[in-house]
């Protein structure tokens, strides 16, 4: 049983004691912090409203005359609030957060999650980038075409992700997480490439 640090009464989940309303030490888990189920599809408007509401309620200025414990809790809770909001509002960082918690960090694995045909494309695109850097202007057309293709691939991965999020939330199944990781890996590759192409074409 967890009790309130101030009135020692039993706590329900939540940041404030239901009996004396004292601010408690915040949970570090972002989903728990916002009292959300561990889902990947999130209503952003509702989350944002919660974020603004908590920003006001937890602001350290409101605790400047309170006890040392509550001042410390306010600082800690505000820090978690900002990190949690920044992480959860973006579908990519949200999925990466959930993956990391499930021991499926991005970047810890190797080429196995990248389909070979994508590697070929990546390689060809890098060749074209190199030609352009060496002054071959004809590579520009090739790059512009490639950029369109990769942007379409990015849009396709985002659609894949959305479907996988729904699947994950319905079943909370590890296969969905593994599939999500594969898409995120592909996506990261593609965004890096588009960034490189943009830099050369600008």
């Amino acid at each position: 049983m967890i009790t309130c640090w101030q009135c020692k009464k039993e706590l329900e989940k939540g940041l404030f004691c239901p009996s004396c309303n004292a601010l408690q030490s915040p949970p570090t888990d972002y989903f728990t912090f916002f009292s959300l189920p561990r889902h990947l599809s999130i209503n952003i408007e509702a989350l944002q409203a919660k974020f603004y509401d908590l920003s006001r309620k937890l602001h350290p200025d409101k605790y400047s005359r309170k006890s040392e414990t509550e001042r410390a809790n306010s600082t800690a809770a505000t820090a978690v609030l900002n990190d949690a909001w920044r992480t959860l509002k973006n579908p990519i960082t949200r999925a990466e957060y959930l993956l990391a918690q499930s021991g499926l960090e991005i970047g810890e694995q190797r080429s196995k999650d990248v389909p070979p045909e994508l590697l070929d494309e990546v390689f060809e695109l890098n060749m074209a980038l190199e030609e352009l850097r060496h002054g071959d202007q004809s590579a520009k057309v090739e790059l512009a075409t490639a950029r369109e293709k990769f942007q379409a691939m990015l849009a396709a991965s985002d659609a894949d992700l959305e479907n996988l999020f729904v699947k994950h939330d319905a079943e909370s199944c590890p296969p969905a997480l593994a599939a999500i990781r594969a898409v995120l890996n592909r996506r990261r590759y593609i965004t890096n490439l588009i960034r490189d192409v943009d830099k050369e074409l600008s």
């Binding site: 991005i106 970047g107 190797r110 080429s111 999650d113 990248v114 070979p116 994508l118 590697l119 070929d120 990546v122 390689f123 890098n126 890996n185 592909r186 990261r188 590759y189 890096n192 490439l193 490189d196």
Partner: peptide
């Protein structure tokens, strides 16, 4: 052999 690392965007043939 064509391999790559999504983390850093490297690709190696």
């Amino acid at each position: 052999g064509m391999v790559g690392a999504p983390e850093c965007g490297d690709v190696m043939k």
